[in-house]
């Protein structure tokens, strides 16, 4: 049985609620969700063959936190990983990658000296189409991205690479509509809540076993210059941007670790204002909404600064939810 905690956007959700017979036919499940930050430094520090620049390492605390995710994904063998990325910004609606196969060179426009990655990925287009359909059903503006020459953004690639570097599981990527920056926080959060609900319905209807990824950094104030341009991985120069920003991150992570999702959602707007948190782009809200805003403790695997920003890797393991509560 599907147990859904409805928040803002309830009215729209109700109209899209499945009938009992439809529920019977569904087998799709969200296995879990990850806060999966995407500083390109993480891929750079790892030196995978796909990435051209070479490094001496760096940011191990965060990179090794992703080992837990890699292990879980190998155990769970999901059908698909779905990522919502702030670096695919769209102004007209929520876009979904809907091309079976995409490959090319993705260069980070901010850190091109660190990230020049040859990507080659398989998209679960049936699920992508379903997310598109359900989003429109929810009253959202949505678009399918069907251009085979599309260059996938570095946020999507970094999160997916760090979660599953073998790329042997199909993916779906969803753009970050810029409504959080165009409208006020309430409208934006409502959009992302509805997008999350649409994503969940699509997963259920297509019978997928899915893992979700919110590709978000937490606090986002950062140094105005690279501390050591000669050696970007100089860890003697890496630190939190400010004590205030660090304390905000810890406050947010504490709420995540203790499963206080309602409280977390309540303080997110203030967190965004105080630390320019990247969660403003909506990825975390989308993911938590898709999972029914689960009041379960998230598992914490690591925290680290990247040019001063705060990044954490956490897992919401829905297989640990109480019976009846698994979406």
């Amino acid at each position: 049985m599907v147990q859904i905690l409805l928040h803002r956007g309830d009215e729209v959700m109700k109209s899209g609620m499945p009938k009992p017979a439809e529920l019977e036919a569904r087998t799709g499940t969200i296995l879990g969700g990850w806060l999966a930050p995407h500083p390109p430094h993480l891929v750079y520090g790892e030196n995978p063959v796909q990435n051209e620049p070479r490094s001496r390492g760096g940011w191990e605390g965060l990179r090794w936190a992703y080992d837990h995710c890699r292990l879980r994904i190998k155990e769970q063998r999901p059908d698909v990983i779905i990522v919502h990325s702030p670096h695919w910004q769209t102004v007209v609606g929520h876009h979904v990658l809907a091309v079976k196969h995409l490959q090319g060179l993705s260069v980070d426009p901010i850190f091109p000296h660190l990230f020049r990655y040859r990507f080659n990925l398989e998209v679960d287009t049936e699920l992508a189409e379903a997310i598109y359909d359900e989003s429109r059903q929810c009253g959202l503006t949505a678009k399918r991205m069907t251009n085979p020459n599309f260059r996938v953004d570095y946020g999507t690639i970094v999160s997916l690479h760090m979660m599953n570097p073998t790329w042997d599981i199909p993916v779906v990527a969803i753009s970050a509509n810029n409504s959080p920056y165009f409208y006020d926080d309430d409208i934006a959060q409502d959009e992302m809540t509805r997008l999350g609900a649409a994503t969940r319905t699509a997963i259920e209807k297509t019978g997928r076993r899915a893992v979700l990824a919110a590709s978000n950094t937490l606090s986002h104030l950062h140094f105005s210059r690279e501390p050591n341009p000669e050696l970007p991985e100089d860890m003697t120069r890496e630190h939190v941007y400010s004590q205030a920003q660090y304390e905000w991150d810890m406050r947010v992570i504490t709420l995540m670790r203790s499963g206080k999702t309602k409280e977390l959602m309540a303080i997110l707007p203030e967190f965004m204002r105080e630390t320019f948190a990247e969660v403003k782009a909506g990825s975390l809200t989308w993911m938590l909404s898709a999972m029914g805003f689960p009041e379960i403790p998230a598992k914490f695997y690591g925290y680290g600064s990247v040019i001063g920003t705060g990044n954490a890797v956490l897992e919401w393991d829905l297989s640990q939810q109480a019976p009846g509560g698994t979406p």
């Binding site: 910004q89 769209t90 007209v92 876009h95 069907t146 251009n147 020459n149 599309f150 953004d153």
Partner: peptide, 10 residues
């Protein structure tokens, strides 16, 4: 090369 806009790709 060939450019595809992230929003206006179609």
């Amino acid at each position: 090369g060939m450019h595809v806009d992230e929003n206006w790709h179609d």
